[in-house]
């Protein structure tokens, strides 16, 4: 717990002049399990994309293991939001997972190592028997596990997940969080989710994202956090075991 694995300082970002995030600073340590919560449009996905290097900050910086996200791409696993992906696309589960091993040599193509890594990633997600299925034929939960397997194909140190439970029923959700908890033994996990109830027993820190970011790495729940979180009745996560607090904001 000495050096932070992710170090964000003074980070700001805007889309076409509209500020999305301003002056964000926080540190995440190794093997933490961080939940990003906040209203839709509050900047959660933008924050993740800045952390993994898909977007470049306007101001401030992001360091992962002391380097820029681009320099440690192999150490970063990313599971994007399901709904952004073309569902009728003709592709097998195996080919999706192999994408995690890109880029391949264009002359020799896939190596045995790539195939082996993809197979063991599928195995760890209990998906090996579905590897020849078309991704379109999977259930929401199976598809999500395929995407996690793709992210795991390089055996990354940090795993980022953007609303992994959006298309999954409640049984699948706790199953998925069980998988994440298992992965958390060896990896740092950062997850965007609205499932604050289920998450509450897993996370070690919570970041409330709404233009600015309030980072909580202890059990304390402050007024700020309540103000920040959502503009609706909400379950608030506490550190460790759930202390469930329901609060209705007056303004909505």
């Amino acid at each position: 717990m000495n050096h932070p694995i992710i170090d964000v300082s003074g980070l700001s970002f805007s889309y076409n002049g509209t500020p999305v995030l301003s002056d964000v600073s926080f540190r995440i340590h190794e093997k933490e399990f961080v939940a990003l919560i906040g209203p839709n449009g509050g900047g959660k996905t933008t924050l993740i994309k800045l952390l993994i290097g898909l977007l470049k900050p306007r101001q401030g910086h992001v360091q992962i293991m002391g380097k820029t996200p681009g320099q440690v791409a192999g150490q970063i696993g990313y599971v994007p939001q399901d709904l952004n992906i073309n569902k009728s696309f003709p592709i097998s589960v195996m080919d999706v997972v192999l994408m995690g091993r890109l880029p391949f040599s264009r002359w020799t193509g896939l190596s045995k190592k790539d195939t082996a890594a993809a197979i063991s990633a599928l195995e760890s997600m209990n998906m090996l028997d579905l590897r020849d299925r078309k991704i379109d034929d999977l259930s929401g939960g199976q598809r999500e596990r395929a995407f996690i397997a793709r992210a795991l194909a390089t055996d990354p140190k940090i795993l980022f997940l953007d609303e992994p439970t959006a298309n999954i029923d409640s049984r699948g959700r706790s199953e998925l969080f069980g998988i994440l908890k298992e992965l958390n033994k060896t990896k740092t996990i950062i997850v965007v989710s609205h499932d604050t109830m289920v998450l509450s027993s897993y996370v070690t820190a919570v970041a409330c994202v709404n233009r600015s970011v309030h980072y909580h790495d202890n059990a304390e729940i402050t007024e700020e956090m309540l103000e920040m979180g959502y503009h609706c009745p909400v379950d608030i996560i506490a550190h460790g075991l759930p202390h469930r607090i329901l609060k209705t904001h007056g303004n909505e």
């Binding site: 898909l54 791409a73 696309f89 994408m99 890109l102």
Partner: peptide, 21 residues
Amino acid sequence: FLYRDLLAISYDDEFAKLRGV
């Protein structure tokens, strides 16, 4: 020659970018 790259770009261009394609 570009099959795997084209596949990745067509399926999920952000992920392809992240993987250095």
